[in-house]
């Protein structure tokens, strides 16, 4: 408990002090966006990401990430690419607890022996202009024929993003409407939104984020380290830490 409080303080200090904040990410999915919510921001054409994320148990869907003793922390790993400036594709594996050899004789051991996998798609038909926002439509895990216990991250959205620049500062306003397929994720269905801020001294590398997911308020930051390592840290409702790293590379 003490170590978790210490971690929380560390993240808060980073949020306050590490203002050098640019690349955009709904990083737990490997896609561009915000923290839990999507935006109409896109990676530049040719950018590929490969990385992983720690997902606090408060961050994941309420069903399917419960091993009988309650929800558990987990993690994911992913690969994504923006082949053209108007489309982005990602593939994500999220670890799930299972009995070892669950479908066989079983060993009695329970661990991260299972996973959920999904494809993410995002299209941006309208690029941001001087007077209008960017518009994107997308989905995580859009196609499934499986039962209610599967596709826990399945959702569809339309998002709008507009940035305002002054004196090197950049303010981003983001709004989206999301529909989550599974009933147990209904709390996230509806209008969501966020405000982002990038300071003038590190305009292209980092940003601060405050978002409303429909159920939680998340604050966090993105920061691009050494030009190729994208870090995202967040606190959900000021309490629950999630975060991750990805290798961020422009293939052009």
């Amino acid at each position: 408990m003490r170590s978790f409080a210490s971690l929380r303080m560390t993240v808060l200090w980073l949020l306050v002090l590490a203002l050098p904040l640019g690349a955009t990410a709904q990083q737990y999915t490997g896609m561009s966006g915000l923290i839990h919510t999507p935006s109409a921001d896109m990676d530049p054409e040719g950018v590929a990401r490969i990385g992983g994320h720690f997902l606090n148990k408060a961050f994941t869907p309420d069903a399917t990430f419960d091993d009988g003793d309650g929800k558990y922390h987990t993690g994911d790993f992913y690969l994504s690419i923006t082949p053209f400036k108007w489309v982005e594709v990602g593939y994500t594996f999220t670890l799930r607890k299972r009995g070892q050899n669950y479908f066989g004789e079983g060993t009695g051991n329970v661990g991260y022996y299972g996973k959920d996998r999904y494809i993410s798609l995002k299209f941006r038909p309208l690029e941001e202009g001087k007077w209008w926002p960017a518009i994107a439509i997308g989905a995580n895990d859009p196609i499934t024929t499986a039962s209610e216990g599967n596709a826990p991250f399945s959702n569809f959205y339309i998002a709008a993003t507009k940035h305002f620049d002054w004196g090197g500062h950049r303010l981003g306003l983001h709004a989206a409407y999301r529909y989550w397929r599974r009933e147990y994720n209904a709390k996230w269905t509806g209008l969501v939104g966020a405000v982002t801020y990038s300071p003038p001294f590190d305009h292209n590398r980092g940003r601060l984020i405050a978002e409303w997911t429909g159920a939680d308020v998340n604050v966090g930051l993105d920061y691009l380290l050494f030009g190729h390592v994208l870090l995202q840290l967040c606190l959900q409702n000021g309490k629950y830490f999630s975060g991750g790293l990805c290798f961020y590379l422009n293939l052009n």
Partner: peptide
Amino acid sequence: RDIHWNKL
């Protein structure tokens, strides 16, 4: 290969 739900 990813052919087992209970094996990574």
